[in-house]
């Protein structure tokens, strides 16, 4: 029996699917970030600052990962493997590395926003902590994803609280989207023993991004009048 399909991560179709999902992530995250930036410019409210920074990091991270995937697909990964892209040793690659761990910084931004810690003077410490932990855990996929999931769990709990308070359909969608992102990171554990979870995780991520996209499209293009 041919079981080669179980090696999902090695398949070109999987890489294509992975890259497409990440490119959708770039569009969604930058779209939300743009709206957040406009809100910040208009109101000068700090909460919008963390909101747009968070989604900007998310978009940048998706973009960096998508580019990396394309490089792998085109067979030029050797260029990356030859160099140690440690942030404090090789600044050029460090810059790229920074983008790759941007996902963790994005979640830190969102956690700061939802917890209301934005008014604290030591908010820079959260970013510093995330940068250091992210940089040194990135090569260990399980650890990096677990830490991302832990930070994101705060966001999930806060957004659930917000949904319970206002019972709004859009808030439900964003809560479910954050929950999907949480599952995407948390299921990395199951992926270690069941390779099929590679694709399950990508489908969950895609679902989460679509759930984030739905209310955004409604905001950008307005509701259809009946």
């Amino acid at each position: 029996m041919d079981l080669s399909w179980l090696m999902v991560g090695e398949q070109p179709w999987y890489r294509m699917f992975n890259t497409s999902t990440q490119l959708l992530g770039v569009v969604v995250a930058f779209m939300i970030s743009y709206l957040g930036f406009k809100a910040y410019r208009l109101t000068r409210d700090k909460k919008y600052k963390y909101f747009f920074i968070g989604f900007f990091f998310m978009g940048a991270s998706f973009l960096a990962n998508a580019v990396l995937n394309i490089i792998i697909q085109s067979g030029n990964i050797g260029y990356f493997l030859e160099k140690r892209y440690e942030p404090f040793i090789a600044p050029l690659f460090g810059g790229y590395y920074f983008l790759l761990i941007g996902m963790m910084l994005a979640y830190v931004s969102l956690a700061i926003l939802y917890s209301g810690a934005g008014s604290s003077k030591n908010v820079g410490l959260f970013y510093f902590w995330a940068l250091v932990i992210g940089a040194y855990s990135f090569k260990e996929s399980v650890l990096f994803n677990t830490l991302c999931g832990m930070i994101l769990s705060f966001v999930v709990l806060y957004s659930f609280d917000k949904y319970r308070a206002n019972q709004n359909k859009s808030t439900l969608l964003t809560y479910l989207a954050f929950f999907c992102l949480f599952l995407f990171h948390a299921l990395v554990w199951l992926q270690q023993v069941m390779p099929v979870f590679l694709i399950v995780r990508q489908i969950i991520l895609l679902l989460g991004l679509v759930m984030l996209l739905a209310p955004m499209l409604r905001i950008f293009y307005g509701r259809k009048k009946k």
Binding site: L35, L42, Y48, F51, L113, N168, T174, I219
Partner: peptide, 18 residues
């Protein structure tokens, strides 16, 4: 124009519960 922009921001604020 301000009203239009503010409405969008309000909708986004409500959607994300921020």
């Amino acid at each position: 124009k301000f009203m239009e922009e503010f409405k969008k921001i309000e909708e986004m604020t409500q959607a994300f519960g921020i």
